[in-house]
Write a protein that binds this DNA or RNA. Structure first.
Lengths: 208, 208
DNA sequence: GGACACCCTAAGCGCTTGCTCACCCTCGGG
DNA sequence: CCCGAGGGTGAGCAAGCGCTTAGGGTGTCC
């Protein structure tokens, strides 16, 4: 895609410019994740970014636009993870394990962002929500594709592919709800555990 | 427990009296599930119940008390489902399948209640939240007990019991997020699918 | 029929919300 | 040295919020 995404892993919001707009966006992610969109005030966001409430409206038209920007960037990132794994090398089991492992790792490691992305969809306006739902449909399709490949090649035993697709994505997404940094597990550990559990769900032998 | 719970399945909020208080509570569940706690106004709740905004404060001290009552009743019901299945007859696999099936059925069939119960915890005050978290710890313990039994008796192959407990509960709870009545699946179908998936996760042969 | 308890409402209080507006500070180019 | 443009602020507006209060209607007891 764009050239600005090359540092996406190191600097998660590197594509957001100018600097003041990025600071506001990072502050909004923290506030939305902690209190929820509706319970967060524009004064709270501006305060976390070290600015006055009015500064927010120089860079964003409304509070909802801020949420939309966060949600769009997050969903694009999530989709890239899943499509990257779906189109990767190896058999269906390898690709499924890779998809779950990296998707879960993102939901755990960036759980504040993921929480906003996954749980504040209803706060978006109708057109913005429709745009985001299209990205989610493509995420669903990427996982379903792996399962269909595995079934066709005899690697998986899955009676209900759409239902299992839903369950796999649901399992990964819910990590953002319960994960917190004070827990005992690291994002890598949760990713490994979940990849194993999902392989069992589709009837594939566990990875080494 | 109490005698008022005998009709709990037929009339979900039968234990709430008087009638006006129940109507308000049912209206609040619908509003909280649809828009979220913070986006719901007391005027909205009272309007859905066909009353004036002031009527709410005859039966409930604050909006937060309403949420607390909903959350407590819902968590008690969820805990009863899980402890009932954990203490039921049959081997660990039967009890685990039963727990998942009925827990998922409740999350799908009463998804508006479940959504409030599972996703609005942070809106509770500190003491109320602590009380609810204790109920959740007991739910976790009920599922973990089934897994431990299954491992001890050689029915299950589960390397990480606490992690798998978390995953099983997480999978079931997230049903409340994505389920809606316009979808293709019935609560019974989702319950059956999920029970099968969870048995696979713990390495047990599928039920007939 | 009068006293009383119980629900409920109309009106509105004090406060916070998302957002705006008039103004200011800083800094590169002629 | 002045100028204009762009990023920032202090003060505040209209609207909506959770919640309160004074009072009215209704049914049940003696």
């Amino acid at each position: 895609m764009g050239t600005a995404e090359e540092t996406a892993d190191d600097m998660p919001w590197g594509e957001v410019t100018p600097d003041a707009a990025r600071r506001l966006l990072v502050a909004a992610v923290a506030a939305f994740a902690e209190r929820g969109y509706h319970a967060t005030t524009t004064r709270d966001i501006a305060g976390r970014a070290g600015m006055s409430p009015a500064a927010l409206y120089i860079h964003y038209k409304t509070k909802e636009e801020l949420l939309h920007r966060i949600s769009r960037i997050g969903h694009v990132k999530a989709l890239a993870i899943l499509e990257g794994a779906a189109g990767g090398p190896g058999g269906a089991a390898d690709r499924l394990a890779d998809a779950v492992r990296s998707f879960v790792r993102w939901h755990a490691g960036r759980y504040d962002t993921a929480r906003v992305v996954q749980y504040e969809l209803d706060a978006l306006g109708p057109e913005h929500r429709a745009e985001i739902l299209e990205l989610r449909r493509r995420s669903d399709a990427a996982v379903r594709r792996i399962l269909e490949d595995g079934v066709r090649e005899g690697e998986f035993d899955v009676p209900d592919v759409p239902g299992t697709t839903l369950a796999v994505l649901s399992l990964c997404i819910d990590v953002a709800r319960w994960f917190n940094t004070r827990g005992r597990r690291t994002p890598d550990e949760v990713g490994a555990l979940y990849a194993d559990l999902v392989l069992r769900m589709v009837g594939a032998p566990p990875r080494p």
